[in-house]
C-alpha cells in the first residue's frame, strides 16, 4: 500500500477514535442522553472496509455505529448535533446516537435493534442487482447479532440470489456482558457462511492492512456476481458496552492485553517502521484531527434544540409517486 493511502486510513481511524473520546466527554457531562456505544478499538474495520466504498455503495449499521458513519464520510458536526438532540443533527434530533442515517453518503442507518440492519442490506443489494449496477452493500453487525434469526435468513436469501452484499461481522468478543464463547459454540463465526453456500473469511480486524486487503477481495467477488461474502473481523471492544458500563464480566488484565493490539497503535508502528514517519509526525496528525473534532463538537453545542412543532412532523410523506399508468392487455388465452 502506498504511503498516502495508509495515511488516509490512519487519519480515518484517529478521527473515529477522537470522535468517540469526545462522545465519552459529552456523556460524562450528561449532554447526551441514555446509552452511547463507542467504537473504540474497532476503528480499523470501518476505516478499512469503507475505504472501498463510494456514496453509491450502501451500508447498514448498528447501535455501535459512529465509526461506520464517519468512515462513510459523514459530517462530524451534524453527528454531534444528533447526539445532542439538536435541530441541525442528521435526524433533526429525532434519532439520537443509535439512529443516525445519512442517505447522501450511502449510510442506510444505525439501528437500535440488534440484527435489524442485516436484512435491509439484502434488500439494498437486491435493488442494486435489479438496476444492473456495479455497486454493493456492506452490512455491519456484531458477534451477538449473528445469533439473531435475521442474520441467518438474510445470509440464505442473499446467497440464493447471488446478491452484491458483504456481511461484516465485528466480533468484538462480547454482546453487552456475554462473552462470545458463551453465546456461540464455534471458534469462528465465519464458518456459518458454509451452511449458506457462501464464502466466509476470518480477518484480523485490528490490522488495518489485512482489513483493507480482505475487503478488496470481497468487493471483487460480490460485484462480479459471485454472491455474498461473510467477513468475520476479530476485534475487541476496548471500552464498556456503553459509557457507564460497570464491566463486571471481564478483567482489567484482559482489557489491557487487548490495548496492546490497539489498531491505531499497530498502524502507527507500521507507519514508523515501514514508511519513515516519526513520532512527531504522528502526534501532529493526531493533534490536528483532535482539534477538528472538538471544533465540530463545540459548534454542535451551539445549535438550537428542535422546534416543538416538529414533534409530529416527518411521519408520512404526503406526496405520491409520479407514475403514469399504462394499460396492459393480457395475451389472449392465457388465463
Amino acid at each position: 500500500m502506498n504511503k498516502e493511502k495508509l495515511l488516509d486510513l490512519y487519519r480515518m481511524m484517529v478521527q473515529i477514535r477522537e470522535f468517540e473520546n469526545e462522545c465519552i466527554e459529552l456523556a460524562k457531562s450528561n449532554a447526551t442522553r441514555a446509552a452511547v456505544h463507542t467504537y473504540i478499538g474497532e476503528e480499523a474495520i470501518a476505516a478499512g472496509v469503507c475505504a472501498h466504498m463510494s456514496n453509491q455503495d450502501y451500508i447498514t449499521s448498528t447501535h455501535r455505529g459512529h465509526g461506520h458513519c464517519i468512515a462513510k464520510g459523514a459530517d462530524l458536526e451534524k453527528m454531534f448535533a444528533e447526539l445532542l438532540g439538536r435541530e441541525g443533527g442528521y435526524c433533526k434530533g429525532k434519532g439520537g446516537s443509535m439512529h443516525i442515517a445519512d442517505l447522501a453518503t450511502g449510510n442506510l442507518g444505525a439501528n437500535g435493534i440488534v440484527g435489524g440492519g442485516i436484512p435491509l442490506a439484502v434488500g439494498a443489494a437486491l435493488g442494486i442487482q435489479l438496476d444492473n449496477k456495479k455497486n454493493f452493500v456492506v452490512s455491519f453487525f456484531g458477534d451477538g447479532a449473528a445469533n439473531e434469526g435475521s442474520f441467518h435468513e438474510a445470509l440464505n436469501m442473499a446467497s440464493i440470489w447471488s446478491l452484491p452484499v458483504i456481511f461484516v461481522c465485528e466480533n468484538n468478543e462480547y454482546g453487552i456482558s456475554t462473552h462470545v464463547s458463551k453465546s456461540t459454540n464455534i471458534q469462528n463465526i465465519a464458518i456459518r457462511a458454509m451452511s449458506y453456500g457462501i464464502k466466509g473469511v476470518v480477518v484480523d480486524g485490528n490490522n488495518i492492512l489485512e482489513v483493507y486487503e480482505e475487503t478488496r477481495k470481497a468487493v471483487d467477488d460480490v460485484v462480479s456476481g459471485q454472491g455474498p461474502v461473510l467477513l468475520e473481523m476479530k476485534t475487541y471492544r476496548m471500552s464498556g458496552h456503553y459509557f457507564g458500563d460497570n464491566q463486571n464480566y471481564r478483567t482489567k488484565d484482559e482489557v489491557n492485553q487487548w490495548k496492546e493490539k490497539d489498531p491505531i497503535l499497530r498502524c502507527e508502528q507500521i507507519l514508523q517502521k515501514e514508511y519513515d514517519l516519526t513520532e512527531e509526525d504522528l502526534l501532529t496528525i493526531r493533534k490536528n484531527i483532535r482539534t477538528e473534532v472538538l471544533a465540530a463538537s463545540e459548534k454542535a453545542k451551539l445549535q438550537p434544540e428542535p422546534m416543538i412543532e416538529d414533534l409530529t412532523g416527518d411521519l408520512f410523506d404526503q406526496k405520491f409517486a409520479d407514475i403514469e399508468w399504462k394499460s396492459f392487455v393480457k395475451a389472449q388465452g392465457k388465463g
Partner: peptide, 8 residues
C-alpha cells in the same frame, strides 16, 4: 414514534 431530543 418516541423522539430522541429532550424537549421533543
Amino acid at each position: 414514534p418516541v423522539p430522541f431530543a429532550v424537549n421533543l
